[in-house]
């Protein structure tokens, strides 16, 4: 019994990381209608930023996470302006190819600058072991759940309650009508990209502390996050959160009780099942 709960906990933690990456992806898709394949590299840049801040400037890990979010957010605005703005309104394939190119460029740039050596962010929390009703985790892993929950709540309030959030939702529903109502589309685009990148940077910092930091670290998580985004319904924030948890749990429970070697297959099998039963995604329609 204990094993089941431990596996559920494992699933929730990994689901939280997927969730942070997928939220940015799905927001960027919902508003800019761009499938951003370079999102994993944004995650990687977030991790390197946090690594640099903690190891070179010796700043506390949680603070470094916030700084990384800010730095990568600004980078996001830059990327949106320079790379994605010029192809806005063009066929979707342009955005896909462009982001794919950006992804390869950024990975290789990181390979050139930082080499392939894996490095680790020392958060100082991994040594603190917590035991709770037979379940084991470290403070670092608990931090993943706490940080992502806080970020998700903050995001929810921002989208639902603030004026800018309403403007973002309006743009998702109908770009032209929102523009007619006086919403500055270009500001909303920049804001969305910045927020999406910030979330990825947060995930990167957490991932870099839990796992290791290296140039191609973004590839696998972003692939899983695409599964999450599709399952949750493209552009649907609530759907992405539910789908991320569902994916994390499927991986840990099937991996733990059937066979771990096929762990990645379960993710895509789950995707096929969800698409067959509910093709519009778990939370249906565009939210």
């Amino acid at each position: 019994m204990e094993i089941i709960f431990q596996q559920i906990l494992n699933g929730v933690i990994i689901g939280s990381v997927y969730c942070l990456i997928a939220l940015g992806l799905t927001m960027i898709f919902g508003i800019l209608e761009v499938t951003n394949f370079a999102h994993g590299e944004i995650y990687m840049i977030g991790a390197y930023t946090s690594l640099f801040i903690t190891s070179q400037l010796e700043i506390h890990f949680l603070l470094s996470l916030l700084i990384a979010m800010a730095v990568v957010g600004v980078l996001g605005v830059f990327i949106e302006r320079v790379v994605f703005r010029p192809i806005l309104g063009k066929p979707m394939i342009n955005g896909m190819l462009l982001s794919f190119g950006l992804s390869i460029f950024l990975t290789n740039l990181a390979l050139l600058l930082f080499k392939a050596d894996p490095r680790k962010i020392e958060s100082g929390y991994s040594q603190v072991r917590l035991t709770f009703a037979g379940l084991q985790l470290t403070l670092e892993r608990l931090m993943v759940i706490i940080v992502s929950t806080l970020l998700v709540i903050a995001l929810y309030f921002f989208i639902q309650k603030t004026k800018l959030g309403k403007a973002m939702r309006a743009v998702t529903q109908d770009r032209e009508a929102a523009q007619l109502a006086g919403v500055s589309i270009s500001n909303i685009f920049a804001l969305t990209f910045a927020m999406g990148c910030s979330l990825a940077a947060a995930a990167g910092s957490l991932g870099g502390a839990l796992f290791t930091v290296y140039p191609s670290m973004g590839w696998t998580p972003v692939l899983k996050s695409f599964v999450v985004v599709i399952m949750g319904g493209f552009g649907n924030v609530a759907g992405a959160i539910i789908a991320a948890m569902l994916l994390g749990l499927t991986e840990s429970l099937c991996g733990g009780f059937i066979s771990y070697a096929y762990k990645d297959a379960y993710a895509f099998l789950l995707l096929v099942v969800v698409l067959l039963i509910k093709p519009e995604g778990i939370v249906g329609g565009r939210g």
Binding site: N10, T220, Y260
Partner: peptide, 11 residues
Amino acid sequence: GENDYYTLLTK
């Protein structure tokens, strides 16, 4: 490229 081994190790 696997990152999270908790599932494996719990087993």
